[in-house]
């Protein structure tokens, strides 16, 4: 049913989206009600507030094979819980720097402020992000992890094989 994460024919970007209940998730519903068709690559996880976003969610998503992560919250000043989106913003900025350091391209991680009446913005944001991630190709971290694990295994065996003849 689902496509593989190999860079073969038919690879499709997989974006995990964390949308806040009051604004962005409602806007996504509005996009549905208004039949604003857009790319099918985003899978939405609903949280009550973008402030709930733990950076580990983002890292876990990438580690499990997401090619992009999108976070949606209310516009600054409009958070249903007053300030949650500001906290989310702070975490996102720090996370962006970390992801840069890990070699994950900026276009793969995106924070967008989308209010409850902006169904159109949900559509354009998802379409734009999918296009960018498609241009970058698959991130394929699980495959990379598998490679690195294999490498470590081989190294271990190689070292184990040498120990008899080598002095410290």
């Amino acid at each position: 049913m689902t496509t593989t994460a190999e860079q073969a024919n038919g690879w499709e970007p997989r974006i995990v989206a964390f949308f806040c209940n009051w604004c962005t998730y409602t806007a996504a519903d509005l996009a549905g009600v208004s039949r604003l068709r857009h790319a099918p690559n985003a899978r939405i996880i609903r949280v009550m507030c973008s402030g709930r976003l733990d950076p580990q969610f983002v890292l876990d998503a990438f580690a499990r094979g997401a090619d992009g992560v999108l976070v949606g919250g209310c516009h600054p000043g409009d958070c249903h819980y007053m300030e949650g989106n500001y906290k989310a913003l702070r975490r996102v900025r720090l996370l962006e720097r970390m992801l840069d350091g890990m070699g994950i391209h900026r276009d793969r991680f995106r924070l967008e402020w989308i209010s409850a009446s902006e169904g159109e913005k949900v559509k354009t944001t998802i379409n734009d992000m999918v296009a960018r991630v498609r241009a970058l190709g698959p991130l394929a971290l699980p495959a990379k992890f598998a490679d690195w694990d294999r490498e470590m295994d081989e190294l271990e065996h190689a070292v184990a094989a040498q120990t008899e003849d080598v002095h410290a």
Binding site: M1, T3, A5, R14, R64, P142, F145
Partner: peptide
């Protein structure tokens, strides 16, 4: 956390992750 991590895993595990 456990619930959201499960959701993330469920979304992406078409190719079961080989996470150690």
């Amino acid at each position: 956390d456990e619930q959201i991590f499960s959701e993330i895993r469920g979304l992406l595990e078409a190719d079961e992750p080989i996470l150690t």
